[in-house]
Each structure stands twice: as C-alpha cells, then as structure tokens.
Nucleic acid binder design. Structure first.
Lengths: 265, 265
DNA sequence: ACAAAAGTGTTTTCAATACACCCATGG
DNA sequence: CCATGGGTGTATTGAAAACACTTTTGT
C-alpha cells in the first residue's frame, strides 16, 4: 500500500470517446441528454472505514467472514435502506457496529462502483470515514464478535488480513484522507476522549503520520490556533511519574490557519 | 451561497439510533450484518460540475431545461450505463458535453442521495468535478445549444439562474473543492491551455480566490516548487505593449510543498 | 518617449524549528 | 533525589509579503 501526498484524490484517467453517442432526447423525464428511458438500477451500500488509535497505532475495524468466502476480512457496512439518506444510513450503521452516536467524526469518503468491483453483488458502494476514540469494548453491536481492530501498517504485510474486493483501496483512501485532514483541520481531537491532554493530541499526529513531533513546538502551535482546543482543569498524574498535564476539550474551529504541515512527502 | 474554509468536506450530523436494528444474519450473500435479502435498488446518475475561466471569472456549465420544469437550469449529467465504471461514465459524459477528452482534470467530487433530493427520480447521483481551459465553442455536444457558462459569483444573485434539486449545493461543493485544491496541488494549470504564461496561471488563482496576488512573489513561489511548471520558449507580445512572457507547460508534480495558502478564510 | 506587462533584487515580517532549561509528580 | 513527562524561554532558520527597480515590447 502506497500513500500519495496530501490528500490527492486522484484524477480520472482520460477515456476514449465511445463509439456511439445516443441522440438527444429530453423534456419528458426530468433528465438530460443521452438518458435511456428506463435506466439500469443497482443496489447501493455503505462501507465504513472506522479509524481509531490503539497502543499508539492507527487501526481500522474489519469484520471476519466465514469460510465459504475465499477472502477472510471486509469493511463493516451494508445496504442503504430505501427510505433513508446516505448520511443517515452511515450514521445508523456506525451505531450498529460500535454503539457510537454523537462522538467522533463521520464524513463521506468516496463512492466506488462499476461492474467489476464485486461480481456477486454489482452496485455502488458509498464509503464513509469515521474517526473514533479508543472504544471501551473492541466493537459492540451485531458484528461485535467478528470485529477486530487492525493496525493499518500491517495491512499490506504478508501476515496481515486479506481484504475483500476493492476494500484495500477504500481503506487506503480513508487513511490518506484522515492523514491529510489532520494537517488543516482540528480533527485530531476526534481520535481523543472528550477531555484530553496536549500529549494525547500530539500522539494522534505521531501515530497517524509516523513521525516524532517536538512537544514544546506542538504545544505552541496548537494553543496559538484559535478555537483548536479550550482548557478545562488538571488531570491525575500518569503511570509512573511526570507532571500532571492540563486537560482540554475540542474548540469550535473548523480549519487550521496556517495548517500543521507534514515535513516529508 | 457561502464558502467555508479549506476544503472542509463537512461532517455528518449525528443521528439518533434507529428504533430497531435487524438481527445478525450473514454468510449467504456476501454482505454483512443487517442486510436485507433483497436490497432496494435505485438508478445511479452522474452530475458534472464543469469549471472554467472566462473573462477572468470562474464559471460553471449549466443546461437550460424546457418550460414543463419549474426550475430552469441544471448541471449536465445523466444515468450511468449498466456496463460502465463510474469514472468511465463521467469521462464519457464529459466528452459528450464538451468534446474534451485528454485535457484538463476530472475527479470524483461526492455522492448525493436519499429519497428527498429529487422526488421524480429517486436515486443517487455521483458528482464529478472537471477543471477545463476556456473551450473554443461554449459547449459542443448534444446539449450544446442549451448549455451556458455562468459565473459562479452570479449563482446566488437574484438575476442568476435557478438551479434544480440539490444542484446549488453540488456546485458549491465543487467550487470549494477546486478552490482548496489550488492551494496544495498544481491543478491551476488544468484551467490553462497546454502552454501558458505565469500571468495566465496567476490569473487562475486570482479569479478562483477573488484576490490580487503579487506577480513577483507568485513567480518565485511557482518556480521554486519543483515540478509545478516547466519552461518551453517565448510567446508573441500581448495586446497593447508589454514584455513578452515565457511559456510553460504543466510539470510532473502532484502536490505543492509547501502549499500556496490563501490569506483570508 | 511613454505605457504596459514581465521579471529581478532587497528588506521586513513572521512562523517553524531546534534545543536548553524549569516545573511537578511518583517511586 | 532522581527519573519521567509537562511546560517555558530563546536563538536560528526559512519562507512569505511588500515594494523599489530593471527589462522588453507596442504605440
């Protein structure tokens, strides 16, 4: 798995013009040029890329599938109900998988489709990305017993899980989106509990980017960005010595100006 | 229309957990927890947000619809064929609308869905964003006579076009994506012809961001970013005096490090 | 000669880095 | 009292902004 720089969504490769184009027909079905009268219909599903931090490593939730399937692991997800919105469906399925409702962050990632992605169930899949704090239980909910957090760094190693369909790419896109968004949004706090220390927040960046950040400079950077975090009180002393750290909550900022840029890439 | 800062995709508002959740059933259809046996199927369409620069203004291509419809303008687009990929469908429809094949930039923007977005044709729409140079004809292709470039700044003015369904939001998302990507990618060149001057490139930023950039500083910034542009020769003198400018082509860079940040926001 | 646009040089400003040092707590 | 982690101060580096100035063309 290879991450390209900076949230580059990736352009669509140019396609040769099709051999024939349908003639214009319009004005009777609310659609536009070239539409067939009865369009093909497909099933729409939602796939969830749930990311969290466990033991200083960025992890993604995968569901183990039973032996009839050659590929053992898949992203959590399921079909979109006919009467629900895409965002609503993602929220519902996130809740079903983790019990999470208000905490964290959930956003649409990208839609994957085409006849070749899953021969057994053709259709489109709308992927969503969620950033979660380390959950109390690994993954309560219907798929709980089958769910497991996998460090994303292990996904392309030989002893890592085999992923179904295009799920490796979806995970890669989600991880890269998360990494990029840490740069210019305050979303790192979505990986933390409601109250967190600046060291907690710094460890999010260090785990996601696999870098070491200078604590003094990180502190200055975060505190000098208005609305990134707001202070509360003090916390219990950590395991094995050290000065107690101040606690913070998420602020109201939606973007970081200037951003917190990754060195490399 | 209000643009929020920095490519913020926007989180999904938390939803209350549904009253009931289906019991687990798995292992026979390749899907996961909670899936119905026969999922609802819908039509999938592609909407195109085609952006270009005309007369120093950022413009979007809209299609005029005939009187039976209460709303006069819509984004170009149409249904996805059963045997084609989403990206392929977007390429095909881009070609059908503009004749453009290899030039410019085309990427998936976001998927919009749910039962409430278009009562007449429920389904999901996958929006694509294309950045194009100023085309020779306004818009050749099947919808050509109905097509018009609209400055995006005029879209929410009273004398601007009325847009169907959620198309105002799709355009807003596309414009914000384009504005954000100018910061950290070399995509500004996608708005230019194959060969362009640094002033051409600067005018892309000035039009998209509605700011004035200092030509000397802009020049230094672009030339100091490896792979942003590569020089070629010299150009004819412009209309009415002035030193001829050097011509450049797109370089091989896919990201800008460090980015070219917008001042405000 | 003059206007207009391209391009160069230089100063100032400000943020990011590196790193020395102090503070508070557990053992 | 010492190890550990939190927090402060400060010098250095580097990039961005501001702007004066030179170059090359058309009229």
């Amino acid at each position: 798995m290879r991450w390209d720089g900076h949230g580059q969504t990736g352009g669509v490769p140019p396609a040769s013009p099709p051999n024939q184009v349908r003639g214009p027909r319009d004005g009777d079905d609310g659609r536009r040029h070239g539409d067939p009268v009865t369009p093909p219909v497909v099933a729409v599903s939602v796939d969830l890329v749930l990311l969290t931090l466990r033991g200083g490593r960025l992890c993604v939730l995968l569901i183990r599938r039973d032996p009839p399937f050659d590929v053992a692991w898949a992203l959590p997800g399921g079909f979109v109900d006919g009467d629900e919105d895409l965002d609503t469906s993602a929220s519902r399925q996130l809740w079903a998988e983790t019990g999470v409702t208000t905490t964290g962050h959930l956003e649409q990632l990208r839609t994957y489709g085409g006849p070749h992605r899953d021969p057994r169930a053709p259709g489109v899949s709308v992927a969503y990305l969620a950033l979660l704090p380390n959950l109390p239980q690994p993954a309560p909910g219907g798929d709980g017993p089958r769910a497991r957090w996998w460090p994303v760094a292990d996904l392309d190693s030989p002893d890592g899980p085999a992923l179904a369909f295009d799920h490796p790419r979806i995970v890669a896109d989600g991880v890269e989106r998360a990494r990029a968004k840490l740069e210019y949004t305050p979303l790192a706090a979505a990986f933390c509990e409601d109250q967190f220390t600046l060291a907690d927040l710094r460890r999010v960046y260090e785990a996601a980017w696999d870098v070491a950040l200078d604590p003094p400079n990180f502190r200055r950077k975060v505190l000098s960005t208005p609305g990134f975090v707001v202070p509360v009180g003090r916390r219990t002393s950590p395991r094995g010595g050290g000065r107690p750290a101040e606690l913070y909550r998420r602020g109201s900022a939606t973007a970081l100006h200037p951003p917190l840029l990754r060195r490399s890439v």
